[in-house]
Write a protein that binds this DNA or RNA. Structure first.
Lengths: 188, 188
DNA sequence: CGCCGAGTTGAACTGAATCAAGAAACGTGG
DNA sequence: CCACGTTTCTTGATTCAGTTCAACTCGGCG
């Protein structure tokens, strides 16, 4: 759990009291492979911190699912839009392999926001960080080709290529598994 | 300027004192058509509220620019990633037609954050709102076709189609001007 | 052993890119 | 206020990346 505090401290210094207010509300959770951390249509009630494992985000479809994101060890994970708006989620959070996490409920987080300014700063930093991530992705989807996006993932997160099935990566970069299989062949 | 307060009040109620702390730091600015609100490589120093006009966001390229967003009347505008990280902006903010805005500097906004909890809440809400916008866009880029994206803009913001040159819209939905011209012809 | 999902490979098809040229709209100076 | 030049938009022909449909291979697992 100290890991989480260290991450926060990179952004803003917290008193022990502030940390106590926050960390006392964290609850541990574990999922096995393919376990649903959040189902379609449910309202996201948690902001989670991944201790170990990978989480896949996808929109289920009749034909096939649309995988649009992943979260990894030492990152936060949440259907954050549903969490914020309190509307049902339009996508699913699923464990890829076994996943362990610490999480805080929506209600408890609101309490933290009220109890301390630091809470709000952390909340603001979280939202800002998520915004930055999405901004990068937007530009990549607009200006990079599928092949360039694949190579980027490959260089930034080599472990991803090993642990995540090809068809999910294909969906993430916006092409079919067949097309990715051919790109992979071409560049290897 | 009351417009801005009304927008804020939709999210969180502010005391007159809080409002005074914030609004006293707003400064008016005006740009003529094609005026650069932020140049490439500059650090964004403002969070702006658009009183009238449209702002275009684009990444300049040798061949052609990549327009990836717009902001309209009654919305906030900023190279928000540069604003947050204090790194040089990788894109340009340009006035499409004449633009009038109120804006607050980075430094003054930090003061507001320190002076009141409400400041932090507003900052958090702003970041959350921007995150939601980018999330929607990500899904649209992944699962909608170019034609679907065009029709969406058309129904959501008919005025956009009239006021914004086709080539910018084409870039925004991720295709060439020629391709958009053909889509337009086909569906009309 | 046989099944099943994941990945690969092939062939035909398609939406959009590219190259190229002409038409329309736009603004600026005379 | 018109004439000119520039930019924007349209249209055509060709090329290309990726889709779709389909068949086959591989590895794990009941």
């Amino acid at each position: 759990m100290e890991k989480i505090r260290t991450l926060f401290e990179q952004q803003v210094s917290m008193s022990d009291h502030d940390w106590e207010s926050f960390s006392s509300k964290l609850v541990k959770a574990t999922y096995t492979s393919k376990g649903k951390i959040l189902n379609l249509g449910e309202v996201e009630n948690y902001l989670s911190f991944i201790v170990s494992g990978i989480i896949r985000y996808y929109v289920p479809g009749e034909e096939q699912d649309l995988t649009f994101g992943f979260s990894f060890e030492n990152e936060f994970a949440s259907a954050y839009d549903s969490f914020l708006t309190r509307n049902p989620s339009s996508y699913v959070l699923e464990a890829l392999g076994s996943v362990q996490l610490w999480r805080i409920s929506y209600e408890d987080l609101q309490t933290v926001y009220q109890e301390s300014t630091v809470g709000n700063i952390i909340g603001r930093n979280a939202a800002e960080g998520l915004f930055l991530k999405k901004s990068k992705r937007e530009l990549s989807l607009l200006k990079d080709s599928a092949e360039e996006r694949y190579l980027k993932i490959f260089s930034e997160r080599p472990e991803v290529i090993r642990e995540i099935p090809l068809k999910y990566i294909a969906s993430y970069i916006g092409i079919t598994p067949q097309a990715l299989s051919r790109i992979r062949k071409r560049i290897s």
